[in-house]
């Protein structure tokens, strides 16, 4: 079995987002980039499955649509344990274009399972995984928070309102994963970092898929009000402030 994990390159989740002057773009000048947290968990689960497979999972590959600035993020994924990487050399304009580029790049590569994070932490579009499955004419299961392989069958837990449902599927399949799919992301080991430089990172030309959407305008959220600390031994003060200052009781 060959697994592919789709990787998005996103600003560190602690980044203070600044907008450019006309508010239709984000100022990326001092942003630190990371692997999209959902994708990182997907990669972690893929590696766990490979390690437990006794050789039946032959490789875990990663793919990304982006420019050369993403290579550090891809090297980190290789350091964590992915075997090889493909970067489609194009700016990731929207989910449709990204899904189209990935589908074109891998259509002849016969991956048995493709893992995507359910969303990326930058634009949270939640659309790429489903579109990719359609382009590849593959089955897909979304919102998967548990993934086990039993023989030829995949056992998937899907999160639904009030609980989860268990779904079985067979390869080839696109699995769109939710948090919980792996406990926590892995820290790359020194050996992994050393080996990452020798692993293949193939850059392929984009087909030039056009985006179907564009960003018109961003509005930053209202700044949070300052937090007021009240001593734990002084509940009377808490009641007083809720009553007289916040006026909510």
């Amino acid at each position: 079995m060959k697994i592919l994990v789709c990787i998005s390159n996103v600003p560190d989740t602690t980044t203070r987002i600044k907008l450019s002057g006309d508010q239709n773009a984000i100022d990326l000048s001092s942003v630190q980039w990371i692997i999209n947290p959902w994708d990182e968990l997907a990669l972690t689960r893929a590696l766990e499955l490979k390690e437990a497979s006794g050789g039946s999972i032959s490789s875990v590959s990663i793919i990304h649509v982006g420019n050369a600035g993403s290579d550090a993020t891809l090297r980190k994924a290789l350091a964590i344990g992915a075997d090889d990487a493909i970067r489609v050399d194009a700016a990731p304009t929207d989910a449709y274009a990204v899904a189209h580029e990935i589908a074109e790049a891998i259509k002849d590569k016969n991956y048995d399972m493709i893992l995507c994070g359910i969303e990326s932490s930058d634009y949270n579009g939640s659309a790429m995984g489903g579109m990719l499955a359609e382009f590849l004419n593959m089955e897909s299961v979304s919102s998967v928070s548990k993934l086990e392989i039993e023989g030829d069958e995949l056992k998937l837990n899907r999160e639904i309102a009030g609980g989860f449902e268990v779904v079985s599927a067979t390869a080839p399949v696109v699995v769109i994963v939710q948090k919980g799919i792996a406990l926590e992301p892995r820290i790359p080991s020194m050996r992994g970092i050393m080996m990452a430089r020798k692993k293949p990172l193939e850059v392929v030309a984009a087909t030039g898929a056009e985006a179907l959407t564009e960003f018109v305008h961003y509005t930053p959220p209202q700044p949070k009000a300052a937090c007021k600390m009240i001593d734990a031994d002084n509940p009377a003060e808490l009641v007083n402030l809720l009553h007289n200052e916040a006026k909510i009781i």
């Binding site: 550090a72 090297r75 980190k76 350091a79 820290i187 790359p188 080991s189 020194m190 970092i193 050393m194 990452a196 430089r197």
Partner: peptide, 8 residues
């Protein structure tokens, strides 16, 4: 690599 080590 050094950046990756620092982050790790």
């Amino acid at each position: 690599e050094q950046l990756m080590i620092k982050q790790a």
